[in-house]
Design a protein around this nucleic acid. Sequence first.
RNA 1: GCGAAAGUGGCGGAACUGGCAGACGCGCCGGACUUAGGAUCCGGUAGCCGAAAGGCUAUGGGGGUUCAACUCCCCCCUUUCGCACCA
Length: 840
Amino acid sequence: MTEYRPQQLDKKWQDRWRAERAFEVEVDPAKPKYYCLEMFAYPSGHAHVGHVRNYMIGDIMARTKRMRGYNVLHPFGWDAFGLPAENAAIKTGMHPEDSTLANIAHMKGQLQRLGISYSWEREIATCLPDYYKFNQWIFLKMYERGLAYRRRSTVNWCPKDHTVLANEQVVDGTCWRCGAVVEARDLEQWFFRITAYADELLADLATLTEWPDKVAVMQRNWIGRSEGARMRFPIAGTSDSVEIFTTRIDTIFGATFVLLAPEHACVERFAGESADPAAFRAKVQAFRNLDREARLTGAIEKEGFDTGRTAVNPFTGRDVPIWVANFVLAEYGTGAIMAVPAHDQRDFEFARKYALPIRVVVHAGGAVPDVATMTEAAAAYGTLVDSGEFTGEDSPVAMARMIRAAEARGIGQGEVNFRLRDWGVSRQRYWGTPIPMIYCATDGVVAVPYEDLPVTLPRVGEFTGRGDSPLAAIDEFVHVTCPRCGGPARRETDTMDTFVDSSWYFLRFCDPHNSDLPFSPESAAYWMPVDFYSGGVEHAILHLLYSRFFTRVLRDVGLVAMAEPFTRLLTQGMVLKDGHVMSKSKGNVVDPDTMLAKYGADALRLYVMFVAPPEKEIEWSDAGLEGSFRFLLRVWRMVDHWCETIGGEGMPSAATDFTAAERALRRKTHETIREVTSDIEERMHLNTAVSSLMELVNDVYAFSATTARGLPGRAEAVGQTERPQTLFAMCEAIDALVVMISPFAPHMAEELWEMLGRPGGLRTVPWPSFDPAVAAADEVVVPVQVNGKVRARLTVPVGLSDDELQARALADAAVKAHTDGRTVRKVVIAKGGLVSVVVS
RNA sequence: GCGAAAGUGGCGGAACUGGCAGACGCGCCGGACUUAGGAUCCGGUAGCCGAAAGGCUAUGGGGGUUCAACUCCCCCCUUUCGCACCA
């Protein structure tokens, strides 16, 4: 009896895999490829069980696909730039580069100890110049194509620390560090024109058939396409006009005032032309600050004030007042709306509050709303009334006609609007990719030439968290000569959003050491798209949308052929402890290394896979882990018990004369092969794959008890010769078991395979194949229902005719007891093999 | 408020296309082996009635479609997640 020592096996096989470069791959056009990827990690320091669950899930797929004959790319890397390291530097003084590299080293060790089959030679870290050089390269390509541009935009500004804050650093409207009330401030910032791809990003969601619906829906809502019209309302007494966007042009005869966002360009102009510009501007600024604060605390009261100006409703010709309102969004549409209080709830509340006029212009079903008494807006489509030549038409028809009329008169046109906005990528931070741009007094904005890349991030000595971007304080960095005129110039000192890093890293893995290009088109043509991608649902919108955007840009640049980077997506559930998400601050993390010391990597992997389907959240349980460990012991004992009789390279020759017990075991073996294969590859139900393996083990134990060799630990007749058929059936079952358990428990499986004397490392062994002839039963149990209740189970030969089956069912004594004295109205024989008798 | 997903034994979960509800595991109960068992092996385990055979009731609640519903349809409740003034 060989003892199971998981810690020794973990080390033995991990060392051997590394020495044999077992998981390194090259492009091989002769073999089908499979690109299996888990979202790379932010190197926070220590991975807990919640993090590593995802890597285990991917590893099951990678290891299975390898044995299924695929050339499997399974890489890993580090999303190594970001705010936490910089904040830690402010607090502890440790340089972000030092802390990040130390964290990476530790976490890499953790993953290796779990036996995740990564191609470590392809490891990348986004904070290294050989990676972020190509962030800059892609940025320049974007700039050339007009997809990267600069404009003023609002940021959170802490007036005390003189610094820009990220949204998550704003707590209840105040600075997270000093508590000062955060202000809105306009800065020049770089943007990526993701909206240029909005239509394509939306339409192609339909092609992502192997994504969870949930994620596609979230992206669809995020992009938020809406069809409507843009209309010009002339400003009374001027030759200018206010442009509005509406999706309800059919209600335009009820538009009784116009509302502007506080940031709207006209607002500043009206302020300047007003009697008391200072008072006017004070009101506007109050709205802007309140707006940002309220976004975090919840709904705000709708407020506004009269600009004193009026516009002309182009359809009614009447003058309508122009107001500024705090709930109108500057970023959406034109930043101005026509208010139709009778048919829009927000406009209705506003009109009631400030006693503005209301006109009903649409009648839906039911009572006609009365302006004097109505308590809410009537938002439904209906038939137009009091709408001039459009009166009597239904809303959808009226909308189309009104847009045509507006276009004919030159006062507006149909327009599609998106909720999606361009992506602001500037960060006034240190620990990120420098934006490769230069500002020259003579030449203006100049791109850094490609041959000068990378613009290397200089090492900053001290982090105070105050003032501008830390890079702005480094003279050698800021002062450059203009690449165009050679004169003095200034570098951009902002860095890029770290979402840039993660928007193309999956492409870098195809060719991670390329120093000329982000990756070669040939490598991407072979490996892309990612066949299986798994990660947290918290990335359902931004990361996945940005990655889809980048892939399209790189397609248009000519580096890749396809548009969608991820064929199949799995969003894995979180791991909870005591009902809460694991986190260092809550003190409820489960450290994988603690579990490894006790049970080894295989038991931990098996437990996490078995306890629930991958996409569901799980509650950590020590008892469950213990149970998985016991199952592995059970496997170990059985294989150990049989390996001297069925071991070696020669399989017992296939016999024909099987006993019923041997046939039953072979049937179970092949059924298990079928179920485990489809559970892993198709359904990703890893929990039921494990339970199928458990059932097989239970059957092997039952079969073993019937043999001369008996059960492990109490072999009464060790050495007695078994029938070759018995050896064949046992050998077939155990080989299939060891191979199929290997994605879950790779170290133990390798060791058992070696103990069995089988040639080759397991990754080179083909996955067992399902033989339907062996799996076919010769008898089946058919339940018989009478009026929907099961009253008997008949054991009948396979292939019995429906007529014969019906005859036997009705002849059965237990069935008769429920049919005697009644009339059989109907007998249904279901495809699945079930007889349903209806009596009355 | 809008959108999405989910609700099954003491617990985690299974049931794939409408076809035997509760696979598999944890826990618990019993047996074997044993100086011992918290190891191992075997068996039992949804609830209620019954000595048993068997019967009845059960998949959040209420209706419906069907020979047959965890599964499909309608209404309601609860939970989780996402979006949250998008004109």
